[in-house]
Design a protein around this nucleic acid. Structure first.
Lengths: 371, 371
DNA sequence: ATTTAGCACTCCATTAAGACGAGTGCCAGC
DNA sequence: GCTGGCACTCGTCTTAATGGAGTGCTAAAT
């Protein structure tokens, strides 16, 4: 009896079984496996081993007289220790390179990456937009709309343009807005949004303290203040206040680009309409998916969620292969592929891996000429 | 014999049949119809009439011993002349009003409208983004990225921010860009993008003519030129050239917001996976849908495509109820509902109608205070 | 001249039964 | 510890039978 729980042979057998199941989609029986396996073993022996693997929770029989199918734990063991990753095919690599090459118009790199993933894997591709906090502010601009409504436009990382409407406490003239923008640009340009937010808060706090200290005597200039003239100083404070509104928390509506969802409609394991509906609803509600992807951002390198591991019902029959991508050695986002649990991990993993690296490179501001 | 092809009675019968079919989803037989119908008619008589209607191509039997189902022409006749539109229920109307009320942050009105449509009708809602050409330019801004790459940011209609990267023929300093923007803003602000594009082309053409006339003698100022100094004039020409690049054709990537696609997965007539896949693929490829919606923009008021009428295979089993929406008496976009041919037209039509009107009102720049 | 009742007929949907086959579990022998 | 053999299970496929909803046609009724 295979009392020595997981010997080499049973692992090889599990590997063969998973591979077979992934390529066929049919529960695999002892006979089929016996033929697949290099080692000469009779179906009966294999049945014994399979029974052991089933006891360990790595396999599962749909019913008495069907073959075995890997469980989530079975897949997990497989991807963690048994999998032999296949290098990308030349043509796919070329495709990725040409799609994600550093070009002048990299305005839709995220979309391109997502489309490439879905196109090449024939599953769904997903790419999160770069986390705003981790991204560099390049330029900020204010534009008066009406009365106290001000449109804030800011550019990050060479290409992305964001905008938001804020309400100011008083009415500003275009010149004042211009001045405020100039000031903010001179101080904060080039720093990460996160840093800017902190600096802004800090600034406001210091000001608060000064106010209390010098109660009323606003003609005296506190030291450490860069501004030369009092009225100027007042203007700058307004600028900082506006910056605070602009970079407010909650501003970061994380989002992602998902493509090739329709590819998922071909898979038999997702042919159940209710399941599929749940999955697509999760896609459009977004928050669940975002949360899941956020988890992947912590670790870098390729990460995999198999079936129920994700913790989201809608993903019960799906796997998610992700990798974070970095700009300037800083992790800014995640991309990945969504497909049925029964997917060709050994091919998908390198796809995701390479795409993440290329996307990071393409987004790198250093590779495009600085101002 | 009902030789007088479409008498009042047969029309009433058709109406009853369509209504019954819409609410049941089952082919409707003569007996059921006889009960539904106010008039006392035996099933046999009804059978005769139904046979006539079938000859006219208004009805169709799935098979010998099933009831009848309306054909596309049947539906068409129904919606065109038989339909009695039901007014919106109070709660739905309230919902629309509160969702589409004029608020300060109407940045995502389009999305809100789409969500409302899908939520209230339990089908898919679609709203096109306002046509750029028909929308007013409010402000333009240039931002130098690197060398000849310039980011153009322009705001239209109070709220929408667009951006595009253009390549200029020479390197401009920030000051030059600022000047160019100022000039363009002073001349073109408030005019429709379409008008601006034409004016710009005109300007360039005139300049061209001037150039040929005065070949080389650029010290002489041609009359009709507003600029006072030659170098200034040169700068303005650059501005116009940049404007041309910015408002280039092909820039108008028409787009739409589609929500509630998942609602479509519940309908039995779309439960066929292949069909559904085709439909969803059409949704993500967009161009087909855009073309279809564009057609609806020509006519104003509610417009309906039933099944194959749309001309797109993917929509064969769907109907599309649309209405254009206008800002400032100018049609700028289209919104609508997509669902199975068997939909409650009498309810959907007022939904679409009212939503279009409210959206138009909410987007109207006049209703928000001007600068 | 319509309308109606009656009747034979068609065709789908459901159910039941049987045959098939893939695969298992277990046992006894190698 | 591995293997062959064997009985058994269970899903799938095929076939046949039954029931019912609905039609088309014809002949009688209005």
């Amino acid at each position: 009896m295979g009392n020595q729980v997981l010997n080499e042979r049973s692992l090889q057998l599990l590997k063969a079984l998973v591979e077979r199941y992934i390529s066929d989609g049919q529960p695999v029986g002892s006979r089929a496996l016996s033929k697949d396996l290099g080692v000469k073993l009779s179906p009966a022996t294999i049945r014994n081993v399979m029974a052991d693997l089933e006891d360990l929770g790595l396999l599962h029989s749909p019913h008495t007289s069907a073959g075995r199918v890997p469980t989530v734990s079975g897949y997990r063991l497989f991807v963690d220790t048994l999998l032999t990753v296949k290098p990308l095919e030349a043509k796919d690599l070329t495709r990725l390179y040409q799609g994600l090459s550093v070009s002048d118009d990299n305005s839709d790199m995220i979309g391109v990456a997502s489309r490439l993933l879905s196109e090449l894997t024939q599953m769904a591709g997903v790419v999160t937009l770069p986390k705003r906090e981790r991204v560099c502010l390049r330029h900020i601009e204010f534009l008066s709309l009406s009365n106290t409504r001000v449109l804030v436009i800011f550019v990050t990382n060479e290409q992305e343009v964001h905008n938001k409407i804020i309400h100011t406490s008083k009415v500003f003239s275009p010149a004042e807005l211009q001045q405020a923008a100039n000031y903010l640009n001179s101080i904060y340009s080039g720093r990460s949004l996160d840093a800017v937010r902190k600096a802004v808060l800090n600034e406001l706090q210091e000001d608060q303290e000064r106010m209390t200290k010098l109660s009323g005597t606003d003609l005296h200039l506190p030291e450490g203040c860069r501004a030369a003239k009092p009225d100027m100083n007042k203007g700058l404070l307004d600028a900082v206040k506006m910056a605070q509104l602009a970079f407010d928390q909650g501003n970061d509506k994380d989002d992602y680009v998902l493509t090739g969802e329709t590819n998922l409609m071909g898979f038999s394991e997702l042919s159940d309409m209710d399941r599929l509906k749940q999955l697509f609803e999760a896609f459009s509600q977004k928050q669940g998916v975002i949360h899941l992807l956020d988890q992947c951002m912590k670790a870098d390198g390729v990460q995999i969620f198999i079936g129920e591991e994700s913790g989201y019902r809608a993903f019960d029959h799906c796997s998610l292969v992700t990798s974070s991508y970095s700009v300037d050695d800083q992790v800014v986002g995640v991309l990945g592929v969504i497909g049925p649990t029964r997917m060709a991990y050994e091919k998908i993993i390198p796809f995701v891996d390479v795409t993440a690296k290329l996307l990071g490179a393409a987004l790198n501001p250093k590779s495009t000429a600085p101002l």
